[in-house]
């Protein structure tokens, strides 16, 4: 068995385990935790298209989650349009927002870009929190929107149990990971990496850096908004604090930085590590020390940045490769 075959086997095994888990785990609580884990892995992978490949640090992706969630929910509550369609409409609106944010901000470097994206996202949250109607659309200010679970079923993206949500978010995650893989090996991926590392050199080599970043931003915001719709349908209740908060934007960045920005496995590894930490700290410290999870994330981030500045994916990939080499060596040596 050669290296590539082992990789394929490992991949299939991981997928089988992921799809088989709900058969083993019957507890709704654990499934809920897993759904949110995949949700964050999906969000971070989408974020990674801009934050990882394009080499900038967007800290306002919660705004796109919010646009997705509010769009599909309003369309469903006021017009009875299926959230599946609302998901795409939200994606398109978020793409427009992403391009509008990207046009003026992609010229900024480092912290200035990060601050600008925070400003946009916070501005959006404040607006949503303080008005009840945008034109004919009821957004209900800080009270948020509740989706009454009346017509349960696939058409309305509503289910009585956790399993369907689990499979939907898992499929979304697999799709976005595959997309990232394809992009990373394409011209766009090369251009994003080059433009992120040395914009001047990239431009001289024929790369329209601003255009590549805008394309990445458009895709990233579209995908992020889809997750917003998922979240709205999963919890059936959205309000500005829950989905447009800075906490959410920061958590995405934490996961990416700790797992490894710009890599494909990084966001998944980051979510696998941080989400359980976050969930259990909320379970055990939720009453006494709310926000404890962010302190823990901060500590982990400091440690990881100090010892593995390119994220945990790097040592883990090395470990995996060594392991594979040993296995292939043993079998061929026999």
């Amino acid at each position: 068995m050669n290296y590539k075959n082992i990789n394929k086997v490992a991949l299939v095994a991981i997928l089988l385990i992921a799809f088989g888990l709900p058969l083993v785990i019957r507890s709704a609580t654990y499934l809920h935790i897993l759904v949110l884990l995949f949700f964050y892995a999906y969000l971070t992978t989408s974020w990674n298209l801009v934050g990882g490949f394009a080499g900038v640090l967007p800290l306002g992706h919660a705004a796109f989650v919010g646009i997705g969630a509010y769009t599909s929910t309003i369309l469903f509550l006021q017009y009875g349009i299926s959230p599946w369609i609302g998901m795409l409409v939200g994606g398109v609106l978020a793409t427009i927002a992403g391009i509008l944010i990207g046009l003026p901000t992609f010229k900024m470097r480092g912290a200035y870009f990060a601050l600008a994206t925070i400003a946009f996202a916070e501005g959006f949250r404040v607006i949503v929190e303080n008005i009840d109607y945008i034109g004919p659309f009821k957004i209900n200010g800080p009270r948020g929107l509740q989706i009454p679970p009346l017509d349960i079923g696939l058409a309305n993206f509503m289910f009585a149990s956790k399993e369907p949500y689990y499979y939907i978010i898992l499929i979304m995650l697999v799709a976005v990971v595959v997309l990232t893989y394809v992009i990373s090996r394409s011209k766009l991926g090369y251009y994003l990496n080059a433009g992120g590392e040395e914009p001047e050199a990239a431009m001289a080599l024929g790369v329209n850096v601003a255009r590549a970043k805008l394309i990445a931003m458009a895709m990233s915001s579209f995908l992020t908004a889809m997750a917003g719709t998922f979240y709205a349908q999963f919890t059936l209740y959205i309000h500005p604090k829950s989905i447009i908060s800075l906490d959410l934007s920061f958590e995405i960045a934490f996961i990416a930085l700790i797992g490894g920005r710009g890599s494909i496995a990084g966001p998944i590894l980051g979510a696998l590590l941080l989400r359980p930490v976050g969930d259990f700290s909320r379970i055990y410290f939720g009453d006494t020390l709310p926000g404890m999870h962010l302190i823990i994330f901060g500590l982990v981030l400091i440690l990881v940045m100090h010892y593995q500045p390119r994220g945990l994916q790097e040592p883990l990939t090395r470990l995996y490769n060594n392991l594979i080499r040993r296995i292939t060596h043993n079998t061929t040596g026999r």
Binding site: N193, A194, E197, E198, E200, A201, A202, A204, R310
Partner: peptide, 11 residues
Amino acid sequence: TFQIVKPFASK
């Protein structure tokens, strides 16, 4: 080319 070389260093 650039006088001060600008490789994509992590690649």
